[in-house]
Design a protein around this nucleic acid. Structure first.
Lengths: 163, 163
DNA sequence: CGCAACAGGTTTACGTGTAAACGAGAAGAT
DNA sequence: ATCTTCTCGTTTACACGTAAACCTGTTGCG
């Protein structure tokens, strides 16, 4: 008997073999350390958090520099509560502005301010450099390709859009 | 001129090309959704958070079922503050116990209780199944190997131990 | 020994994520 | 038009991570 599961007729689980465990543990540790490092770099050389950067980046991706709150939350895979709170904090720092929505009296439109645009334009080169130096430039072309494939597979299985 | 950086003599950053961007964005989205899904599975079928699971798992990995707080924090790459607080919460739920340290009057030894051992023994099969179904079983052997390689490379660059 | 410097853990203040409750406007049915 | 129901966004209560302050022992040095 290996676990109590055997007592009640459950089949033993298929434990991870060494190779699988290495991948899973590696993924988890990479996630922990890589994200922390990139976040630290971003914070120290631009004063932005990753969340700030993502919001600014999404806003700047549109010609109008504006998004409806809900739409933006969906795109970023954030709850609207989180985005609402985050945007309020960013508004106090002058990075974004909340505007009323012409079509819908309930709606809120999040707009990138000049200050926000400036912030991301200044932050972007350093951020890309950080992502390169801690991840992309360490990998071979094949590894980059496979990482993209893995993410695509996993996300497709979870029913997410890749976009 | 592409950005203001050009005005002050900075070289243009090497932006990510399409393949690189796909890998980076994919990684970020995978991290967001995969972790959330696995955490939800774990919570709903065992009542444990990932953090709980990691603590229990680390404790159970030792014959003595005990770790000094600081050592455990280092191994888990957690701050001692975080571990201290988390362990206090787990103690209230009967999963672990804090003992005094014989060698060092300041020290704390974290011990796995029978309840905690039971909790992880019951949670483990479902958790492995969850990790398999949302990640490992979706990938080819080669992809698993490459994921492990990527993590190893990135962690080595960040100066982390793989262990 | 006695004092200064240090190390192990805990606590505090703060920022931020989540779920649920909420208020206000929109939409649909009669 | 009015009533119900839905949707949008905000707010509230709570959980949790972090950095820094803090307390308490330990260690090293005169």
């Amino acid at each position: 008997m290996s676990t109590s599961a055997s007592l009640c007729g459950m089949p033993d689980p298929r434990w991870l073999d060494e190779r699988e465990f290495r991948a899973w543990l590696g993924y988890r540790r990479m996630r922990l350390l890589l994200d922390a490092q990139i976040a630290r770099d971003l914070q120290s050389d631009s004063g932005l958090s990753e969340a700030d950067y993502d919001v600014l980046s999404a806003l700047s991706s549109r010609e109008s520099r504006r998004w409806r709150l809900q739409e933006l939350a969906d795109r970023m895979l954030w709850s609207k509560s989180r985005l609402s709170r985050h945007v309020s904090r960013m508004e106090e720092r002058g990075l974004v502005a909340k505007e009323e929505c012409a079509d819908d009296g309930r709606g809120a439109v999040i707009a990138l301010t000049d200050g926000g645009m400036n912030a991301i334009v200044e932050a972007a080169p350093g951020h890309v450099e950080s992502v390169r130096s801690h991840l992309i430039d360490l990998l071979t072309e094949e590894q980059i390709e496979v990482l993209g494939d893995i993410a695509e597979t996993v996300l497709a299985h979870l029913g997410a859009e890749i976009r």
